[in-house]
Amino acid sequence: MSVKSILAFLLLMIFQTAQAEGESTPDFIRSIGKIYVVAGVCLIILITLFIYMIRLDRKISRIEKRQKNE
């Protein structure tokens, strides 16, 4: 899980630096009063929690399968 969230964070970081280099105007993430920072924070939280729930779901499915086999 932690590996995946770190990957998501790295992706965001690459996106940000790529944007910063791409144009001379203030970079994308800091435009419109830095609202994209809030978007990034919300996305990080939601994606991480969803990945965690998916992992939990899979774990429960494995237990159910094992229960059925017994």
């Binding site: 969230s5 964070f9 965001l12 940000q16 830095k34 920072v37 924070v41 990080i44 991480t48």
Partner: peptide
């Protein structure tokens, strides 16, 4: 805790 850290880092980068 990890979420707090990562979101804090993104916020810190831009402030």
């Amino acid at each position: 805790g990890l979420l707090g850290m990562v979101t804090g880092m993104l916020w810190a980068k831009n402030t």
